Structure formats: C-alpha cells, structure tokens
Amino acid sequence: MTGVNDAIMCRGFCTTLDGQAQDWFRAMPVESIPTFAALAKKFMSHFAGNIQRWKQFANLCYLKQLKSETMAEYLSKWKKEAMGVTNFDESDLVRNEPKTYTELMDCVARYANAEAAEKRKKEEEEGRGWSDKAPQPQEDRRPSRSRRDRGPCLTPLRHLTPLTQPVSVILDHAEDMDIVSFPEECLKVNPKADPKKYCRFHRQRGHDTNECMVLKRQIEELIMRGYLGQYVKRTG
C-alpha cells in the first residue's frame, strides 16, 4: 500500500473489516470520507473503547494467591497478567536468587508439580482410609530405644527409583530447595572404613556420598512425595 493514493488505501482498509466494524463502515454517509486520515480518525474515535489498555508493572504487586487456589492455578493467572504489562522488567521483580525470571518460573513450576503430587497422594490415602484402622506392626509397639543405641536404619529399599544423576548431584539440588533433612548424629565408623572417602550428607569420613544408603532412602522418599521428578530416569 506504500505510495498509493487515498482512494485505494480506503478501499483496501475496508476489506480488512468484519462484524461490527464492517457494519459501522457501511452505515457511514456516502462521500463522507475525504481522505484516509479522516477515515482513520473516525475509526479510532468510534472504537476507542475496544483498545487494549496495557497494565503497569506495579499492578502485579496486587496479584495474590487465593486460599482456594493451587500453585498451578496461580501460576497460570500470573503468566496471563504478566503478558498484559507494558513495562515488564525482570530486575524489578527478582532481586535475589533465582537470578532470572525464567529461573523463577521454573522454580514455581516445580513447586506446583510437587503440590499437585502431594494432593494426589493425600486423595489416594483418604480413599484407602481402611488402612488407617489396621493394627500397627508388633515391632512398633516395642519399647523405643535411642537413635544412638539402635544405629541408623541402613536397610536398602526393595526397589530404588532409577536416577539420571548421582545422588551427590541430587543432594546439591535438594539442599538448594531446602527439602533435605541432614542427620543430626554421625554414624558409627567402622574401623575398616576408608578414611579417604567422605560423605557430605553425614559430614564425616568413612564412606562416599554416592554410596550412602541413608541419603538414597531419603531421595526415594522425596520422589514418592512428588519432588525431584526431573532426576527420575524414564523408561525408553
């Protein structure tokens, strides 16, 4: 349309209209459009109420999660509102870690997935309410002994979930998310243990972090609760 006269511009613009806009154009009096500029001015004036108003960044400060709203629902609402902000600036939103808006969204998405998994687990447990009335195992009713007397429970799980990364790498991530519980007491060191090996989970020498069954058990429990799903090895 560059360089053409007003008559062609007006006729070309007419072909792009539909619905109410087309009805408005057809209702205009004959020979009431002297120039394309005049047509544009009338059009903008008539449909001024339909113009999308961009929100300011400060509007996001009032966007709060409702009590009845899940993290996933709130995240969807946040993304929708953020798309309508005119001066969106990541530096105004994130002053500490995570360092970028993308990292923040990834972090929130992980928590949303964990929340959904926790909700599903709770619903499944409520559906199996009869199991809560089952008698407790005999060993649970025995007199309790101190943790130091009985030592740590190192019995390996019958089935450990296959992982894509060593447990030492997963430990770093779990620590950053503040979902790992470090043991309060040290293990009893076997005299034959290798002093060159160090477990960062127990913070003591004698065995390697990647060999630590207590850490593997806790990672398995976290996976069952819906965390660390990105480290689960998928079949195929």
Rank of each mutant, 00 (worst) to 15 (best):
K233E: 07
K77E: 00
I170S: 01
K99Y: 12
Y231F: 13
K188M: 08
A40G: 09
F88W: 07
T16D: 08
Y74H: 09
K197R: 12
I33L: 14
R147T: 01
T209E: 02
W24P: 03
K216P: 00
K64L: 10
P29Q: 03
M213N: 08
A72L: 08
R217N: 15
E103Q: 09
W78S: 02
S76I: 14
F182G: 05
M224F: 05
A82W: 07
K42R: 10
H46L: 02
S45I: 00
T164L: 12
M9N: 11
P183N: 05
K99Q: 13
M213C: 11
R148I: 07
K77T: 08
Q218L: 11
R158E: 14
P98V: 04
R234G: 09
M28Y: 02
G49V: 07
P166K: 04
P34H: 13
D140R: 10
F88A: 06
S131W: 15
E103G: 04
Q65N: 02
N113H: 14
H159L: 07
M44I: 03
P34C: 05
Q20N: 06
M44F: 05
P29E: 01
R217L: 13
M83S: 15
Q56A: 07
E118A: 15
D149H: 00
V232W: 00
P166Y: 05
V232Y: 01
R200E: 09
G129N: 07
M44C: 07
D208K: 10
K192V: 03
A58T: 10
L215E: 10
L187S: 10
S168F: 00
G229I: 10
D106I: 12
A40K: 14
E220P: 02
D172E: 11
H159C: 08
D194H: 05
K197S: 04
R128E: 15
R11C: 07
E211G: 00
K77W: 03
A82T: 13
K99A: 13
N5P: 08
R95I: 00
C61R: 01
L75H: 03
N87P: 00
K192N: 12
P152T: 10
S91D: 15
A27D: 04
M28F: 03
M1C: 06
D149S: 00
H207Y: 04
V108K: 02
A114Y: 05
V108N: 03
K133I: 04
F201T: 03
K188V: 09
R150L: 06
M105V: 09
K41Q: 08
M71C: 12
T15F: 15
T209C: 01
